[in-house]
Amino acid sequence: MNVNVSRPAPQASAQQVPQTEALVLNCMDYRLVAAVADYLDGRGLRGKYDQITLAGGAIGVMSDQTTAWAKTFWQHVALARKLHGIRKVIIIDHRDCGACKAFVSTDCADIREVETVTHMKWMEALADEIAKREPGLEVETLLMDLDGSVEAFFL
């Protein structure tokens, strides 16, 4: 069945390109969808960020097992810069991440300190790659606990 629906084209606005604060990268984990939104709202970012969700967050971009996801991520970053003038990427990884267990090590969340270092390593690698590919973008790296609390890492 072919359906051809004709809709009027949106009218071009005389306004400038909207300035969006950031592109947020976070994991797909259903347990933290609301917590991520609440955290960003609490920072006054409601309606001021683009978002891409990939299993594992930074791990999902940087793993050799997810190269197609990386391509999608980089396309999103470039488009968010062009269309919305983003100035930073906020990476929100989280504890007890199933993608970390699938792509890094099944025991990556067993010891809290090891889990922290593991996520820091992947977020730092992504931050370095962002600096190379998209100069001028600030990068913020965060690790969220299952209770919604957040640790910031300054890499």
Rank of each mutant, 00 (worst) to 15 (best):
residue 74 W to P: 00
residue 74 W to A: 06
residue 74 W to T: 06
residue 74 W to H: 14
residue 75 Q to A: 13
residue 75 Q to T: 14
residue 75 Q to H: 07
residue 76 H to G: 03
residue 76 H to T: 10
residue 77 V to R: 07
residue 77 V to M: 11
residue 77 V to H: 04
residue 77 V to K: 07
residue 77 V to N: 09
residue 78 A to V: 05
residue 78 A to D: 07
residue 78 A to E: 12
residue 79 L to Y: 06
residue 79 L to T: 05
residue 81 R to W: 07
residue 81 R to Y: 03
residue 81 R to Q: 15
residue 82 K to D: 08
residue 82 K to C: 03
residue 82 K to V: 02
residue 83 L to N: 12
residue 84 H to P: 14
residue 84 H to L: 03
residue 84 H to Y: 13
residue 84 H to N: 15
residue 85 G to L: 07
residue 85 G to Q: 13
residue 85 G to Y: 01
residue 85 G to R: 13
residue 86 I to L: 11
residue 87 R to G: 15
residue 87 R to I: 04
residue 87 R to Q: 13
residue 87 R to S: 15
residue 88 K to L: 13
residue 88 K to E: 08
residue 88 K to C: 12
residue 88 K to M: 10
residue 88 K to Y: 07
residue 88 K to I: 12
residue 89 V to I: 15
residue 89 V to L: 15
residue 89 V to M: 08
residue 90 I to R: 10
residue 90 I to D: 05
residue 90 I to T: 07
residue 90 I to L: 13
residue 90 I to W: 11
residue 90 I to F: 13
residue 91 I to S: 04
residue 92 I to H: 01
residue 93 D to P: 05
residue 93 D to Q: 07
residue 93 D to L: 07
residue 93 D to A: 15
residue 93 D to R: 08
residue 94 H to F: 15
residue 94 H to I: 14
residue 94 H to A: 12
residue 94 H to G: 14
residue 95 R to V: 15
residue 96 D to N: 12
residue 96 D to E: 06
residue 97 C to H: 12
residue 97 C to K: 03
residue 97 C to I: 12
residue 97 C to V: 09
residue 98 G to Y: 06
residue 99 A to G: 11
residue 99 A to D: 01
residue 100 C to I: 06
residue 100 C to W: 05
residue 100 C to M: 12
residue 101 K to C: 10
residue 101 K to F: 00
residue 101 K to A: 15
residue 101 K to P: 00
residue 103 F to V: 13
residue 103 F to I: 14
residue 103 F to Q: 11
residue 104 V to H: 02
residue 104 V to P: 09
residue 104 V to Q: 04
residue 104 V to K: 04
residue 104 V to Y: 01
residue 105 S to N: 13
residue 105 S to H: 14
residue 105 S to G: 01
residue 106 T to F: 01
residue 107 D to Q: 11
residue 107 D to C: 02
residue 107 D to T: 15
residue 107 D to P: 00
residue 108 C to Q: 10
residue 109 A to V: 07
residue 109 A to D: 11
residue 109 A to W: 09
residue 109 A to P: 01
residue 110 D to T: 11
residue 110 D to M: 04
residue 111 I to N: 05
residue 112 R to T: 12
residue 112 R to W: 03
residue 112 R to D: 14
residue 114 V to D: 08
residue 114 V to I: 06
residue 114 V to S: 05
residue 114 V to H: 01
residue 114 V to L: 02
residue 114 V to R: 08
residue 115 E to F: 00
residue 115 E to Q: 06
residue 116 T to I: 13
residue 117 V to S: 08
residue 117 V to D: 14
residue 117 V to W: 00
residue 117 V to P: 00
residue 117 V to G: 02
residue 117 V to H: 03
residue 118 T to F: 02
residue 119 H to Q: 07
residue 119 H to R: 00
residue 119 H to K: 00
residue 119 H to A: 06
residue 120 M to L: 14
residue 120 M to Y: 03
residue 120 M to P: 00
residue 120 M to S: 04
residue 121 K to T: 14
residue 121 K to A: 10
residue 121 K to F: 02
